[in-house]
């Protein structure tokens, strides 16, 4: 049975990569290389070190940005869920920001903070923060009312209510917010590097595109999407391990 689990993903990979190969060989466009050439380019770029080097400068702002969101964003979201006053002041803003195309701010960030690390970190934070804050807030506000009442009936203080009931209950949603924030962070870092800074994976994509090295460009894009998918999948696995659905108490 263990082998069975891998059969469909395998067929699925073969199906999509096969279509890609056919489309590239046909070709649908001169700028559309087949899968095999892209894979070779990916191998080449990994071996010659250009890809690992690019990732070093791409992942640094991403990690810093997500950690910042994790601390400040979750903290603020929890505050918003616990305090009616903070909620009153900030909920409408975050509801709008969550629906808004925050990427529009990125050009402004460039022209203030230049093209350095700060600008990239800000791009990640601006895109990731709304969903991190809103998820933490929702996690706190969705607390099972009956559990809170139970805590009060057994003479729990407000502090105990928050520490022993509300926070453990909100844990799963808060963590899911971090995962969604990471997905937004990847979008932010890619836009930032494509638009602003000629460094990292974005530079690799723009450079190879400008000199018409399409297999290399595809390989760079393929790698960032694969990395994002793996990172998010990893967080999802961790989430299910830390907060199995049956003990979440939704």
């Amino acid at each position: 049975m263990a082998q069975q689990r891998f059969v469909w993903p395998l067929i699925s990979f073969v199906f999509v990569f096969g279509l890609w190969e056919l489309a590239g060989r046909w070709p649908i466009s001169l700028a559309f290389p087949p899968f095999s050439k892209t894979a070779l380019a990916l191998l080449r770029m990994t071996v010659d070190g250009s890809l690992p080097k690019a990732y070093l400068s791409t992942l640094q702002p991403l990690v810093i940005g997500i950690v910042l969101c994790g601390i400040a964003g979750i903290g603020f979201g929890i505050g918003m869920g616990l305090s009616r006053t903070i909620e009153w002041f900030s909920l409408p803003i975050f509801i709008i920001l969550q629906a808004a195309p925050m990427a529009a701010i990125i050009p402004l960030i460039t022209y203030i903070y230049g093209i350095g690390l700060t600008a990239k970190v800000l791009a990640v934070v601006v895109l990731a923060a709304p969903v991190v804050v809103m998820n933490s807030y929702k996690g706190i506000r969705n607390t099972n009312a009956s559990l809170v009442q139970m805590c009060r009936a057994f003479l729990g203080t407000r502090r105990q209510e928050v520490v022993k009931i509300i926070l453990p209950h909100a844990g799963a949603l808060i963590f899911a917010g971090l995962r969604l924030g990471l997905a937004m962070g990847f979008i932010g870092i890619v836009i930032a590097e494509l638009m602003i800074t000629p460094t990292g994976i974005g530079d690799l994509i723009s450079y190879h595109s400008s000199v018409a090295d399409y297999p290399e460009m595809f390989a760079a894009i393929f790698s960032i999407i694969a990395l994002a998918a793996l990172a998010i999948h990893g967080l999802e696995r961790l989430e299910r391990k830390l907060f199995p659905p049956e003990i979440r108490g939704a």
Partner: peptide, 19 residues
């Protein structure tokens, strides 16, 4: 004027901590 130590409650939906 609030819950007290001389009273304990059993809830219809059990109200157990799932974790």
């Amino acid at each position: 004027d609030g819950p007290g130590p001389e009273r304990a409650f059993v809830f219809q939906d059990f109200a157990l901590l799932p974790w």
